[in-house]
Every structure is written in structure tokens, then in C-alpha cells.
Amino acid sequence: MTVTFWILAPIMTIAALGILFVRKAVHAALLLAVVMISLAILYASLDAPFLFAVQIIVYTGAILMLFLFVLMLVGVDASDSVVETIRGQRLMAMIGGLLLGLVLVAGLGQISLGTAVGLDKANEGGNIQALANLMFSRYVFAFETTSALLITAAVGAMVLAHRERLTPKSTQPMQAAQRVKDYAESGKHLGPLPPPGVYARHNAVDTPALLPDGTAAKSSVSRVLIARGTIRSAPAMAEPIDEVQRSIDGVRDEEATP
């Protein structure tokens, strides 16, 4: 335990300080993952397999990864992270940090004075069994209250995210009629766009489709690739239309010759 602590303590401290000073939120979340994984290893070294599994599966594997997914999907500007959107947010954060510090000092004081229960007595009969005994006996009211709070929070999130449908759900005939209407008004193509590489000699996404006259269909490639200028020349890669037509005519002449 001592060796594991002295190895992980500097790593956790550096990662925790990095969370405060890095400029990008994604980097801060990755550093938080380092802290959580290191904490899980400390739990394992203290003969607490249940807390180790919960720390890895719930916090690191579920909550943090969900946070990273939302962060990368939505995106957070670095300039927005310093804006205080809630009045008194910094004061509440300072008070919460002081309270957390007092709790840590009290816990370390109990360990130093010898009033804390040892690991052997705490894990008597098995770590998971002892934890379940405490959770469903002495702390059963707090456990059930926390469960009800989490269920209420989940239901509240569903209610807040729910939106009443203002328009009827579009059916397939309605969508077909809308496509015909768009074609009549703006000339928008009725069907799906041609996929890249159709009638070309290469089916890569940067190769445009060829129309029957041999010209490239600009709508068959991504606008991003067009803006980057990485589009291949499909007509240059394809066989010349005249040669193809002559070969077809030659085959027809051979078939027509008795």
C-alpha cells in the first residue's frame, strides 16, 4: 500500500493541478480520468474490491465517458469557461472546497489519533458483505433517500427534455409529396444524390460520379472535399466517352454481321 501510494500520489497531484490550469476542457476531462483510475487502484490496494469496481465502471467508464462524449459532440469554447453563468458560483465553490478540506483533515486526524476502525475489522467477513451490512442496516435510510433522489433527477431530466409535437408526424406519402413540391418550386432532386464513384473507374469518396454525358456530378461529393480542393478528376480517370461508344458500336456491328 505504501509503495502504491507514493507512486500514485504525485501522479494524482499533477493531474489534479492540470485540471485547474489546462486551457481545453477535453484535456481537463482526460486528466480527471487519470485521477479516477489512480483512485481506483488505491481502493484495490486497500482491499476494497467493490469500491474499485464502482470507481472504474460507474465513474470512469460511464459518467466520465458520457461527459467526454457530450463535450466532444457539443463543443465548449475556451473563452466561455471563465464566464460565471450562476450568481455566486465562485463563492459556493470556495465554500464547498473549504468544507471538503475540513472533512479530509477530520478523516486524517481520526487515522492519526487511532480512532478509526482498521481495515481488518472493517472487512471482517468480506469487504462486499461488510459494506452491504452497513448500507442496508445503519445507513439504509440514507441509501434509500439517495435512490429516490436519483430516480427523481432522472424523471425530471426526461420531463425537461420532453417537447410537445406541434406538427403531425410526417408519413411516407407526405414526404413523397413534399419532395415533388420542392422539385416543382426549386428544382431540388427528387431522389437521393448519386453516390461517389458511379460510372467512374474509382469508387472513392473523393471521386465524383459521372453523368451519362461523361461530365462530373458535383452533387455526388462532399462540400468539405470540394472546399479543400481534394476532388479527383473523374472524367480523366474514366474511359473517353467516344472510345466507349465506338467499342459498343463495333460489338453491335459484329453481332449484326451474319
Rank of each mutant, 00 (worst) to 15 (best):
H189A: 15
G114L: 04
I248H: 13
E84H: 10
L64V: 10
R228N: 06
Q89H: 06
L225T: 01
L150C: 10
L119W: 05
Y43V: 04
S137W: 01
S147E: 07
L66A: 14
M92N: 15
A217F: 12
L66M: 13
L134H: 13
V251G: 12
I95M: 11
Q175P: 00
R223S: 03
A153N: 12
L51D: 03
M12C: 10
A132N: 08
G250W: 03
T171V: 01
P173Q: 04
A153F: 12
S186M: 09
R228K: 14
G187C: 06
E124A: 11
A33M: 13
A238S: 01
A132Q: 09
A40G: 13
Y199K: 08
I111K: 07
K188G: 14
D249T: 12
V244C: 05
S219L: 13
A29V: 12
L104T: 09
H162R: 12
Y139E: 01
Q175L: 13
S81T: 14
P173G: 01
T145L: 15
A29E: 02
I56C: 03
A256M: 02
I19F: 08
F136N: 06
L190N: 07
A33F: 13
R252F: 07
E243I: 02
I95Q: 14
P173D: 05
L42E: 05
K218F: 04
R246E: 09
G96T: 11
E164D: 11
N123P: 00
G197P: 02
R232P: 00
I41M: 13
G197E: 05
G197W: 03
G156W: 11
V117W: 00
Y183P: 00
A132L: 15
R252I: 14
E243R: 11
E255P: 00
G156R: 04
V251Q: 15
A227H: 07
L8V: 07
G191F: 13
M135Y: 00
K218A: 14
P194L: 06
I86M: 07
G61Q: 10
